[in-house]
Simulated scan of single mutants.
Amino acid sequence: MTNREIIQGLYDAFAQGDAPTVLGALHDDVEWNEAPGNPLADRNPYASPAAVGEGVFGRILSNYEGFQAAPHTLVADGDHVVALGTYSGTRTTSGATLDAPFAHAWTLRDGKVSAFQQYTDTAQWRDQMG
């Protein structure tokens, strides 16, 4: 399986709510960073699959209904994959709609994610979660 296919598989698993597959694809010593200015960046860098699961995915899923991270473009070069896409979801407390573009920079080692960097419209995240 190529690195591009691995990352596409992670987005597919996330869309299906398959957290064990997503977290299982992360190295034990992953370095995960949310975009500076994103309220979820308060614990950067997340340094384990458990930290990512609790600190990122857990908080997103408890704050948004129908949350999706939908890539429309994946570009791979060696151990690096960049995904371009859109976040969407509805804030559970306010009903506000999230519609934020993203770029994700993934680094893989031995078929697992060793690093992640998010780039997104942090103003939307801050306005809704901050």
Rank of each mutant, 00 (worst) to 15 (best):
N44F: 04
A103W: 13
L10M: 14
Q128P: 00
E65S: 13
G78I: 15
A100I: 07
D18W: 06
A47E: 10
Q8N: 10
Q118D: 11
F57S: 05
S88V: 06
Y11H: 15
L98K: 07
L61F: 12
D42C: 03
G89T: 08
Q118F: 07
V52L: 00
A123N: 13
F102W: 14
A100F: 04
T93S: 08
Q117I: 13
T90V: 15
R59N: 07
D121M: 08
T107D: 15
G66L: 12
A50V: 00
Y119N: 07
E34T: 10
Y64D: 04
G58Q: 11
L10P: 00
V75N: 14
W32N: 00
A35C: 14
Q124P: 04
S114R: 10
A25R: 12
G24E: 01
T122S: 08
A51K: 06
D110Y: 02
S94G: 03
Q128G: 03
F14I: 02
A47L: 04
L26Q: 07
T86A: 11
D99F: 13
V113W: 10
A103G: 00
R91H: 15
G17A: 09
T122V: 11
P101Y: 04
Y46H: 01
T21P: 04
A103E: 12
A115M: 13
L10G: 00
G37I: 09
G111K: 09
N44E: 12
E65H: 06
T90A: 10
A123D: 14
G95S: 04
W32P: 03
H72S: 14
K112S: 12
G53L: 00
G17M: 09
D42S: 00
Y11Q: 15
L23A: 10
D127K: 04
Y64N: 05
H80A: 11
A123G: 02
A96T: 08
S88F: 12
A69N: 05
Q16H: 02
S114A: 06
A96K: 15
N33Y: 03
M129A: 09
L61K: 14
V52I: 02
F116W: 04
A25I: 02
P49A: 05
Q8P: 05
Y46V: 00
D121Q: 10
P49N: 01
G66R: 05
D79K: 14
F67Y: 04
A35V: 13
R126E: 08
N44Q: 13
W106S: 14
A83S: 08
T120L: 13
G58F: 09
L74S: 03
L98W: 02
T122M: 04
L26N: 01
E65Y: 00
Q68R: 13
A105M: 10
A83F: 11
